[in-house]
């Protein structure tokens, strides 16, 4: 079921144990180019750990990850982001004492102003790049409805707004794939709908997503395909409708 020629991301037989706990036990996953792929499973199934493995925040004990045709499991987390795969966190993490705008600008890649020689020796170029990035960031903030907060501290945002900022910030990286860890958790229903609309919109513009989510409405409305994880292992994969009827999947959730 793995090994698709047009897979953007494919991970095979990832294994990671913490002491005695097999958090991820030979799990595989695949995200086709241009898709919105779902990842579901009961609490403690190892979904977040799988994200950590994919993004190199944790090293797998074994297994391989291929992104955009290149093996990436040896890369550092920041290198993976630079390659075009950005992850978000289950509990939104914003940089509290930076403004919302600064949070956005930080995510820009290949800025000459991130090298201190350039700051001193080529201030003109640094300022020019910064200005164009600021414009791009304003556009994104405008579209997610956070532009009125742009100059506020990110720490002053509500929980839902933080989730939005985290997704908007991931977009600033101009990635090929975004890994979303429970984007709808703790967000009010109106905002959930808004987030979903944005994800669909960005997906149409060519961005791929891998989404962990407990809210089945979100999964049903977004995903082309869903992977189910239980106790660290692949349980099933298919369309969302198929998964809702799959007895094994239902058992895994009910067994909780």
């Amino acid at each position: 079921m793995v090994d698709n020629a047009n897979a953007l991301l494919s991970a095979k037989n990832l294994y990671k144990s913490f002491g005695g706990i097999k958090a991820v036990d030979n799990a595989s996953i695949e995200v086709p180019q241009g898709s919105i792929t779902g990842l579901i499973g009961p609490n403690g199934a190892g979904k977040t750990t799988l994200f950590n493995l994919l993004s190199s925040f944790i090293r797998p004990d074994s297994g391989e990850v291929i992104f955009d045709g290149e093996p990436i499991q040896q890369l550092q987390p920041h290198q993976i982001a630079q390659q075009g795969m950005v992850r978000t966190f289950q509990v939104a993490r914003v940089l509290s004492r930076l403004s919302v705008m600064e949070n956005m600008l930080l995510a820009t890649q290949h800025q000459s102003g991130e090298n201190f020689w350039n700051v001193w020796l080529r201030p003109g170029q640094v300022i020019k790049e910064e200005r164009s990035q600021r414009e791009y960031a304003s556009e994104i903030l405008e579209s997610v409805g956070l532009s009125h907060m742009a100059q506020e501290y990110a720490g002053a945002l509500s929980g839902g707004q933080r989730k939005l900022l985290e997704i908007a910030r991931a977009l600033m990286v101009r990635p090929k794939l975004i890994l979303l860890d429970e984007p709808a958790a703790g967000v009010n229903p109106t905002l959930i709908n808004k987030i979903c609309e944005h994800i669909v919109q960005w997906n149409r513009e060519g961005l791929s997503f891998l989404v962990i989510e407990h809210n089945m409405d979100v999964i049903m409305s977004l995903c082309d395909r869903v992977w189910v994880l239980a106790e660290g292992r692949n349980l099933a994969s298919g369309t969302p409708a198929e998964m809702q009827k799959n007895t094994q999947v239902l058992e895994a959730y009910l067994g909780q």
Partner: peptide, 9 residues
């Protein structure tokens, strides 16, 4: 962690 996730070394 956020800085890392956003591609900063």
């Amino acid at each position: 962690e956020v800085a890392k996730a956003l591609g900063k070394n």
